[in-house]
Design a protein around this nucleic acid. Structure first.
Lengths: 197, 197
DNA sequence: TACATTACCAAGCAATTGCTTGGTTGGGAT
DNA sequence: ATCCCAACCAAGCAATTGCTTGGTAATGTA
C-alpha cells in the first residue's frame, strides 16, 4: 500500500478514522479499531491526537469550511435563481462524491455529537444550511420560476433530505456518476415523475 | 428464557426501549438507561427479556409485519396505478406517524444490526421494499401515467429516501400533520417544484 | 558526538458495559 | 393458612472502553 507523499501521518490517520466513523458510527468505533486499521497500537494514537473527539472534530471542521464556502460563492454569484439552485444541488452531490465519509459522519452523528458542548457549532451549520436553501428557493419563487403554492419549509426539507441521504447508498465507481445522479434528481425535483403530454 | 409474563408490562418496557433506541441509537443505549427510564434496576429487565438484542428484535418484527402487510394489500388491490403509488406514500407517512420510534430504529440501526445473523431478515425486508416500489413505479410507467425517461432504480431510491428520512424530523403535533406532509410531498414528487404556466 | 524530534510500543488503570445470581415482596389462588 | 409466581432488588463479574504512563528506536540537526 503506497502512501501519498503529500499526506502526513496525521492526515492518514484521520482518513482511516473517518472511514470507520462513517461505516460504523462514532461511538461504535473504538480507538483500537482505528489503531488496528492503521497498523499501530491504540495508545499510539494519542501521540497525534488528544482524544477520539478531537479526531472527529477535525474531520468535520475541515470539510464544512470547504462546503459552506462553496454555498456562499453560489449565493454571492450572478447566476439566475434557477441556475443557482441547480448549482447548489450539483455542488452537494460533488461533495458526497469527494467527501463521502465526512458527509456520512455529519449526517449520522450530528445529533449525538450535539450533546457535547464542543460540537455546538454543528447546530450553527445546520441553521446556515437552512438559510442557504431557503434563500435559493425564495429567489426562485420571487423570480416566478418556482411554484409558490408549496410550503417553503417542507420544500426545503424535501430537497435537503433528498440530496444528503444519497450518501447512504452512493459509491464512487458505481453504475451512476455523481453528475448523472444530480441531473436525474434535479429533473425529478423540478419536473416531477408525472407524465405530461 | 423468560416467556410472556404480564403482556402489558412487557409492552410498556418495549415502548420505553424503542423510544431510547430511536433517540440515542441501539448500541448507544445501555440496559441501565432503559431500566432507569422504567424506574427499575437493569438486572430486572432480564426477568422479561433474554437480552438487549431480543428487545430490538421484537420491536422491529412487530411493526414490519404490519407495514408490509399494508403494502401487499395495496398491490393486490384494484386501485389504478397512480392511486396505488399515492396510497403507498400515504401509508408510509401514516406509519411514520404511528410507529415513529420503530421506523427510526429500522432506518438508523439496520446497517449495524445486519452484522448479526439473527437480524438477517432485515436484508430480506429491504429487498421486499425495493420490489414493492419498483412494481408500483413500473405499473405507472406501463399505464403511461409516469415518465419513462428516468432511471427506475434512481427514482425508487429518490422516493424511498424522501419518504422515510422524514422520520428524522417529523413530530406528531408539529406544524404539519402527516396527511398534509404526504400531500405536499406527493405534489412535489409528481409535478415538481418548477412553475408551469 | 550530543541532543532533539517523531513515531511508536508495552502495560495497565478506572469507568462502563451486558448480563448473572440468589434473594425479597406482595397480591391472588387454593 | 399456605403456596405460587410475576416483578423486582442487591451485588457483582468479565469484557470492553478511552486514555495514561514510561520507555524505545530511527532519523535527523548542532
Amino acid at each position: 500500500m503506497p502512501e501519498p507523499v503529500s499526506a502526513t501521518r496525521r492526515e492518514e490517520l484521520l482518513a482511516i478514522a473517518a472511514g470507520l466513523f462513517a461505516e460504523k458510527g462514532f461511538k461504535n468505533t473504538t480507538v483500537r479499531d482505528i489503531a488496528d486499521a492503521a497498523g499501530i497500537l491504540s495508545g499510539s494514537l494519542y501521540h497525534h491526537f488528544d482524544s477520539k473527539e478531537s479526531m472527529v472534530d477535525e474531520i468535520l471542521q475541515t470539510f464544512q469550511t470547504e462546503l459552506f464556502g462553496q454555498y456562499e460563492d453560489i449565493i454571492a454569484g450572478d447566476l439566475d435563481p434557477l441556475a443557482k439552485l441547480e448549482r447548489a444541488v450539483v455542488v452537494s452531490f460533488e461533495t458526497i462524491d469527494k467527501h463521502r465519509d465526512e458527509v456520512a459522519i455529519f449526517q449520522n452523528e450530528a445529533a449525538y455529537l450535539l450533546t457535547f458542548d464542543r460540537f455546538s457549532y454543528l447546530a450553527e451549520r445546520n441553521r446556515q444550511s437552512r438559510e442557504v436553501w431557503l434563500t435559493l428557493l425564495q429567489g426562485g419563487i420571487d423570480a416566478g420560476v418556482l411554484r409558490d403554492d408549496l410550503d417553503l419549509e417542507l420544500t426545503y426539507r424535501f430537497i435537503r433530505d433528498t440530496v444528503w441521504v444519497a450518501v447512504s447508498w452512493y459509491r464512487p465507481g458505481g453504475r451512476h456518476t455523481h453528475t448523472e445522479i444530480a441531473r436525474q434528481y434535479l429533473s425529478i425535483l423540478l419536473e416531477g415523475i408525472h407524465h405530461h403530454a
